[in-house]
Design a protein around this nucleic acid. Structure first.
Lengths: 148, 148
DNA sequence: CTCATGTCAGATCAACTGAAATGG
DNA sequence: CCCATTTCAGTTTATCTGACATGA
């Protein structure tokens, strides 16, 4: 955290949205990663467990679409989740190319632990903002994030 | 850009600031990188040239502090800028451990080209927002970016 | 034949680490 | 001796590419 520790002194950077976005993201990402690591998880795991819980059992390609992960990364992350018995992979009887991935009881319990963790992270990230400002920035970021 | 092309369908992600920040940053970063690449430059180059122009000739360690770059990355990026004759490195007579790095005329002209490029990028990134919203988000991001 | 799916090995890129060489 | 500066080689992490095998 040594080379990103202070608001830029450079006029060319310190007011530019791309720079501010990058610094804010770096800080948010550091807080998130550390919190997930403390729970023995990574962002990919949370996104996959969330996709499974919200969508129900499904194929790896569909999971990648939902969690916005590359299929190859889905594959690796599911290996990791499988090792911890948080998901199960079984063949799809209707299409033998596919795996049907299912979240297990222990996956659900991990997910709800991570839900609390990630909520706490939002609070930590938004700490410098008032309640009104928090609503505003969520709104503005939603407009900036790609919609298609 | 295949796996980050649409607003998340997952309720757990689509309203969370860390997620929105990450997606907005990914989009902004892609736009910026492509624009800089079209000019034959990288973000590190722009930051270094900006630091040199705003601060005057200085050492690599100081450049790293100003441009928020690791000293090893400063070194590599200065090699690249030196190859294009955009900066010159000379020994500091008062402290022979140091290099005094100076921006050249061609470095200044690259910098002013990149200034326009980067300004255009801000416009492209902020395209979904009104003028008022643009001021608001800059303000809010400044509060979120680390100040120390 | 083609297309989709899962799998694997590795490429890429920004950021960082550790250590050596030189000098204050 | 200790500390600062530059330099180099290499690690890490997230993301993406390309190829391949299997099967629809």
């Amino acid at each position: 955290m040594l080379y990103r520790c202070c608001m830029s002194e450079l006029d060319r950077l310190k007011h530019r949205p791309t720079w501010l976005l990058s610094r804010a993201h770096v800080r948010a990402h550091a807080i998130l990663t550390q919190a997930l690591t403390a729970q023995g998880a990574r962002g990919y795991h949370y996104r996959l467990l969330a996709a499974l819980e919200e969508n129900g059992p499904t194929s790896q390609v569909e999971l990648g679409r939902l969690a916005e992960l590359d299929p190859s990364d889905v594959n690796v992350a599911l290996d990791e989740l499988g090792r911890d018995r948080q998901v199960k992979r079984g063949p799809d009887p209707r299409d033998r190319r596919r795996n049907i991935v299912t979240i297990t009881r222990s996956g659900r319990s991990m997910l709800s632990r991570l839900d609390r963790t990630v909520d706490d992270v939002q609070d930590a990230v938004l700490a410098p903002l008032s309640a009104t400002e928090r609503r505003e920035i969520i709104d503005l970021l939603r407009k900036l994030a790609p919609t298609e």
